[in-house]
Amino acid sequence: MDWGNILELSLRELIGVQAIVFALAAIGINVQFGYTGLLNFGQAAFAAVGGYGIAVIVTTYDMSFWLGLVVGIVGAIVLALLLGIPTLRLRADYLAIVTIAASEIVRLVGRSAWGRDVFGGSDGITGFSSAFYDLNPFTEPFEFGPFQFRERVLWVLVVGWVLVAVCTLVVWLLMRSPWGRVLKGIREDEDAVRSLGKNVYAYKMQSLVLGGVIGALAGMVYSLFQGAMQPDVYATNFTFFAYAILILGGAATVFGPVLGAAIVWFAFQFIDLALRGAIRQDYIPSWFMDANDTGAVRFMLTGIVLVLLLVFRPQGILGDRREIALDAR
């Protein structure tokens, strides 16, 4: 087994586009769930709206890429308002139900036959990313030790990590401000916060919108990288994967989502390659599993790791143990 190669390919995933996309999605969920206690189970819908914003504007309507960006973000804001206005006055579970339904509605409308002219049906939309790659300042592949990145990938990675950095910075600034304090108060007990003269509804809405817009950025990065906007990428497991990453890294911590995303994608790749290597070398007998099973097995192993984590480190990698201890009181 070529461990050097396995490690190299795994480290590529550590900083790869998938890690960026899920880091962004999880940062958004962190604002909503980690800090405010809002259960948004429809982060996939926000990502899809971001992706469709660019794809529909550029390919379907043949308009500018920049307008597409604006439409994607405004679309996420509108979606947050639509979901939030009826539910944020109610108990927390209503938002959860409505968002999970909305997430499927967005996906099913996107892949529907009658919307094919606009959204491209289940095949999705392609041909909207050239404006983005035209901006690419890199003209040559980038080499760094054993790593080599083609200029296209490099451009996505740079833009993606800049976005992650900016979002993390914004969250860091906000959560050490009085605004963030109100959100955390709402998470703990919204009636107490109301009794202190804060408009809880408005703060929840701001949190939902902010998290949703960051989710839309995730969808934009992914569809630009793929050069295609495919609705089925944004099924509900997209959301739950982002939640798993957030909980692994540590909810209500600034760097938790980023760390969680990097670790998960590294581990995915590493497990997959190591298993394949072991099967090829007959370390693992073929009656037990073959190379086609590795995809499923890595999910199982990830699940086991998550369970172990929740047992031994419920606060996540970066979380504060003392906070969890409080729940037991």
Binding site: K184, G185, E188, D189, D191, A192, D327, R329
Partner: peptide, 12 residues
């Protein structure tokens, strides 16, 4: 007002 069942914000 304050509450009969105290509402301290635990994790603050």
């Amino acid at each position: 007002r304050t509450f009969q069942l105290t509402k301290a914000l635990s994790k603050l």
